[in-house]
């Protein structure tokens, strides 16, 4: 993607102020900035407990130029349902309601409300910005933490022993009109997906990988590079699923080795060569599963 094309693709409006409270190198404000560029001013954001509860700024400030409703950890999808109903009943059908939750609020504590809303096909966009642990409370494991990773509740002597939950398949299984993955390292792909999601009615789910320098243990300036490594090495494939049945990759990958990604992050520093083989096998298996889903799509 050339610089010129990027300039044309990315809307100029800025709905996130630079004075937000994210850590240096955080992927989460970049994700919000890009998503809101595409959604525009007529957006209401629902924010459960997550890093963004802080990034948005304390009372009486806000780093966003759109209305924002902070809510309890597990309620993003339910609150978004309520706001949507209120807008609809008063005849406002063109404002977008966006729930914006972290991986803890999506994969773990918020999954019930999200499943309920998706089953009802509530008309909102749900974005999970995934930094693969409870980062805001100090790097505790979630069910989005990858196997083998260190966190403050999975010490190096007993690192994360379970596989990352496959949230995309879970959401696709609800047969919602649109579910996709994206990464802040690929803004054109991300914006295209937001544009598409905005044009669809019903529940739309966007899973954005958001690299976290203090949580993953890499230096601030490497966030974009870390996202590229995840995508290019099939650890976080970029794809979309329509109506739960039409699966499609949206980005070619140029590698299939996990090592460059794993070795670049301190949270995996304790892993052995055997562990690396195990992670590679897991990534290969998931990639094959996704290829089958794509190949069998109508």
């Amino acid at each position: 993607m050339s610089q010129v094309m990027i300039k044309e693709l990315v809307p100029r409006r800025e709905l996130v102020d630079p004075g937000h409270l994210a850590c240096p190198g955080c992927g989460a404000p970049l994700a919000m900035r890009l998503v809101l560029k595409e959604l525009g001013e007529k957006t209401i954001v629902v924010l459960p407990a997550c890093c963004w509860s802080i990034i948005a700024g304390p009372y009486p400030q806000s780093s966003l130029h759109v209305p924002l409703y902070h809510t309890a950890f597990e309620t993003a999808a339910a609150v978004a349902s309520g706001i949507r109903a209120a807008l609809d009943v008063r005849g406002d059908t063109d404002t977008t309601v966006m729930a914006w939750a972290g991986d803890g609020g999506t994969f773990d504590i918020g999954l019930q409300a999200l499943s309920g809303a998706a089953e009802r096909n509530e008309d909102f966009l749900y974005v999970c910005y995934d930094n693969e642990a409870y980062m805001n409370t100090g790097i505790q494991r979630s069910s989005a933490t990858p196997w083998g990773a260190w966190t403050t509740t999975t010490p190096r002597s007993q690192p994360q022993g379970t596989k990352k939950k496959d949230i995309l398949s879970i959401m696709a299984a609800h047969r919602i009109p649109y579910a996709a993955t994206a990464c802040v390292s690929y803004p054109a792909d991300l914006l295209e997906k937001v544009r598409k999601a905005k044009s669809i009615r019903g529940t739309r789910f966007l899973h954005i990988l958001s690299p976290c320098p203090p949580g993953w243990k890499f230096s601030d300036e490497q966030s974009i590079e870390m996202g590229r490594k995840a995508v290019q090495n099939r650890i976080f494939p970029l794809m979309e699923v329509e109506d739960g049945i039409r699966w499609r990759f949206t980005m070619e990958t140029d590698g299939d080795r996990v090592e460059p990604y794993i070795k670049a992050q301190g949270r995996f520093r304790h892993l052995t060569d055997e562990d690396m083989v195990r992670i590679q096998d897991e990534v290969n298996a998931r990639w094959e599963y996704l290829e089958r889903m794509v190949a069998s799509s109508p």
Partner: peptide, 20 residues
């Protein structure tokens, strides 16, 4: 809104009420 729990019932009420 035929929610999946009372917790979500009250959460949805908060959202709808906040929207006026």
């Amino acid at each position: 809104i035929k929610v999946e729990s009372e917790h979500s019932a009250m959460a949805a009420c908060c959202g709808a009420s906040a929207a006026g």
